[in-house]
């Protein structure tokens, strides 16, 4: 931990991380869509289709509902910008990204929260029923999933004596047996449920729904078009890949670059790419198998995640 200006090689790794998140996010969404289609017996669009969609949208005109204020136009920018900062400082490829010492796991969660909050504000700014509906539901789910996430993080931080991601990762690499302890497994499940809820996937929310009344996330972004919509789509795919990459770091850390050097970084890139892709495929396969929960059953799911996280903390205290 030092406040000195980071070395060029470290900065290069961070830039690589940001690029990986920006390009990898849409590719991950494309991959998940492809897997879903295949499992449902359809051919599906190519994996890079979301990137093509982004290119198309970026050239289209931006619109804004006639009664919305400036907040509406700021939302897509802030959503992408906060995720960029997370991609810069979070240890995804290597345990020592530039400025990695400036934010721990709690800070990353609160940075994510900025994105959720501005999305809800943008939805309310449209002055329509759908915007309010989406914002209300998304914030209720967020308010219930955040505690589960923070307590799960606490369960991971207790044995490492730190909420710093590199410290937790270093400890897992040094003590592989620790990965199979009850607290890890319990917090893993809690973490997964929260990722599903936060990124608006089934069974909490259906990203491909076209029925307004069942929408959560899609209802919030209904009014965006053109370059704004491109940013929102990019931002949400970036959030998904960041969450999955963090999950991979915390629970399956092998392969992450622990030292500078081209070899380590190449291994890191391949490892994180494979892990995230595998997680994405698993999530997509899971989505095919489940149906969307009724909205008022979702809190029960999240309460379950919270209880699991609390159990994880308790077992972390009992079984050090």
């Amino acid at each position: 931990m030092t406040s000195a200006w980071p070395a060029p090689s470290v900065v290069a790794v961070s830039v690589l991380q940001v690029l990986g998140v920006v390009v990898g996010g849409p590719l991950l969404v494309g991959l998940m869509r492809k897997v879903r289609c295949r499992l449902e017996g359809r051919v599906g669009p190519p994996v890079h289709q979301p990137l093509l969609d982004l290119r198309k949208l970026a050239r289209r005109e931006r619109t804004r509902p006639d009664r919305a204020s400036w907040i509406f136009s700021v939302v897509p920018v802030v959503l992408v910008a906060t995720t960029l900062v997370i991609a810069l400082v979070a240890p995804l490829l290597s345990t020592d990204p530039a400025f990695g010492w400036s934010a721990d796991l709690f800070a990353l969660i609160y940075l994510m929260l900025i994105g959720s909050v501005v999305l809800a504000l943008g939805a309310l700014d449209t002055g329509t029923a759908f915007g309010g509906m989406g914002a209300s539901r998304a914030m209720t789910i967020g308010a219930l999933s955040e505690p589960a996430l923070l307590v799960a993080v606490l369960a991971l931080s207790i044995p490492a004596h730190s909420s710093n991601v590199p410290t937790i990762v270093a400890r897992s690499l040094a003590h592989p047996a620790w990965l199979a302890t009850p607290q890890r497994l319990l917090s893993l499940v809690a973490f997964l449920i929260v990722i599903v809820a936060e990124s608006g996937r089934l069974p909490v929310d259906n990203p491909s729904t076209h029925l307004e009344l069942t929408m959560i996330h899609e209802a919030m972004i209904l009014e965006y078009a053109g370059a704004d919509l491109a940013l929102i789509k990019l931002g949400e795919s970036m959030r998904l890949i960041v969450l999955l990459a963090l999950f991979a770091d915390l629970f399956v850390p092998w392969g992450i670059a622990t030292a500078p050097g081209v070899g380590h970084v190449v291994v890191g890139v391949v490892a994180i790419g494979a892990k995230v892709a595998a997680l994405g495929v698993a999530l997509a396969a899971f989505e095919v198998a489940v149906a969307k929960l009724r909205l008022f059953r979702v809190p029960e799911l999240l309460a379950g995640a919270f209880v699991l996280a609390v159990l994880a903390v308790i077992s972390a205290l009992v079984v050090p």
Partner: peptide, 20 residues
């Protein structure tokens, strides 16, 4: 280990908002 640099985060947020 583990610290928070709110000033740096603020600066980063500002820079990436301007960039985006």
């Amino acid at each position: 280990p583990g610290a928070l640099a709110p000033g740096l985060l603020g600066l980063g947020l500002l820079a990436s908002v301007v960039l985006t």
